[in-house]
């Protein structure tokens, strides 16, 4: 039987990462993934349970130069309601809108959704489209160290990522999209409310004079990690958005997605849906 030996609720980042450097810490923020996972035995608590909600500066959404910085403890509800996000990155607000239920949105944090590293993580998909990076903080040699990792390189497998156990994810940062940026997010599940994505598709890029550039496409629940669909991106990059390029993008979506059969859907249906959503989103951009 596993016992939590101590509970910490640090006020400062230094305090938090020092504790993490010292050893076996389970980070608690919203608890919406952690609680069911520890209850079911899928995950074990470390000796120290550390609540990071009180750490100063760990939540909130702010402009920093030409970037937007979202603190890791920011809740999905805060993302959903934030005027800056609504203006500058509506694809993120759209994903927050379809994220679980009100109760879960109120508790779940953006950082937690990323660290949970589920291929179905609904906030990860639009952040990949926005080419976000995550900030990781740790304590080494008597000082606070931080590093930045592009979100695309963050995930290494289902529930696995490059963050070391002594590192705390502190923020998500992405460049404010240009005015000609367009982005859409689409997910699906067997019921409209409170749903884990069967698949999700996010597509974004700069669209001017009918040509799509800097295209980034993300897919959820079709691979061991949240996926950047480079094949679809290549099919669209620098080309006029028309019936031909859409057809090519749909074919590439079929190739990029490597889903499995599980309790939520078969591989066939997931492949079918990514094609449907890729076509739907692109047709929507075209105004069809």
């Amino acid at each position: 039987m596993q016992e939590i030996k101590s509970y910490l609720a640090p006020r400062s980042l230094d305090e938090a990462v020092k504790a993490m450097a010292a050893g076996d810490v389970t980070v608690f923020c919203g608890g919406t993934d952690l609680t069911p996972q520890t209850d079911s035995g899928a995950k074990r608590y470390g000796a120290t349970l550390m609540n990071i909600r009180r750490i100063e500066g760990l939540s909130g959404i702010a402009e920093a130069g030409d970037s937007i910085r979202i603190g890791a403890a920011t809740t999905v509800t805060e993302v959903r309601r934030d005027p800056l996000i609504a203006r500058a990155a509506p694809i993120l607000a759209e994903a927050a809108e379809h994220f679980a239920s009100d109760q879960i949105r109120n508790a779940a944090s953006l950082g937690g959704n990323i660290c949970n590293a589920s291929p179905a993580g609904d906030m990860i998909n639009p952040l990949l489209v926005l080419d976000a990076a995550v900030e990781l903080a740790s304590w080494a040699d008597g000082a606070l160290r931080t590093r930045s990792v592009p979100l695309e390189n963050f995930f290494t497998g289902p529930r696995r990522h490059v963050k070391r156990p002594d590192e705390l994810l502190t923020a998500i940062v992405f460049r404010k999209p240009a005015t000609d940026f367009v982005g859409w997010f689409r997910k699906s599940g067997p019921r409209p409310a409170l749903e884990i994505s069967t698949v999700s598709v996010g597509i974004g890029g700069n669209l001017s004079d009918g040509v799509f550039r800097n295209v980034r496409v993300a897919m959820g629940s079709v691979a061991p990690t949240p996926l950047r669909a480079h094949g679809v991106e290549a099919a669209l990059e620098g080309r006029p958005l028309d019936a031909d390029s859409i057809r090519a993008a749909v074919a590439a979506a079929d190739a990029d997605a490597t889903p499995i059969d599980d309790v939520r859907a078969s591989a066939w249906y997931r492949k079918h849906l990514v094609k449907v959503f890729t076509e739907e989103v692109l047709n929507h951009v075209l105004g069809n």
Binding site: P36, P192, A193
Partner: peptide
């Protein structure tokens, strides 16, 4: 039983 939880056993909810 592969889905012994409300996450994967889909009861309809009020909006539906």
């Amino acid at each position: 039983l592969k889905n012994p939880c409300f996450r994967d056993y889909k009861l309809l909810t009020a909006p539906e």
